[in-house]
Amino acid sequence: MSENMIELFVQGEEIGEVALIRVPHDATVREAILKTKTECGIEASEAEIIVLIEDQDEEIVLDAKLIEVGIRHRHRVHFHRCRRVEVSVNFNGLTKAQAFSPSATIGKIKRWADEEFGLKGVDATEHALQICGTSTRPDLDVHVGSLVKHPHCQICFDLVPKKRVEG
């Protein structure tokens, strides 16, 4: 890879799995969006898209250069039209809800859910977030925004035990 290029891990709306895009190190945030739109086939216009750094709430200015807003090689960014994602988690007949940044990782939401339901130590590591009505358990590195599409900025999880493989 050229010394003038950097790689970014990108997740977001209409991006099925974490994408690794390469852009000039002096590119603007808008140019990074356009590159991702082309490579990932995103239909939303860049004017609608907000840019966030992983697990952060502040929106990034589109015309700033990546380096000016602290985005460097192999940093993790998120593109989405939702500004917040309403997350609800069910466990033992109770439901807890909280709005998160679309760039919040499942790992961050899992730690919040563990705290809300009082799960610690082995109890916490032996449970996973599973999308309601499915058997899908997103990886801890997945950004919650990549699981929803504007204007439906909400998602429901069940907190389920990780079963032993036996039999």
Partner: peptide, 12 residues
């Protein structure tokens, strides 16, 4: 091996 999912795990 060159795509995002594998490289993300390497980076972590």
């Amino acid at each position: 091996l060159e795509k995002g999912p594998f490289q993300s795990g390497v980076d972590r």
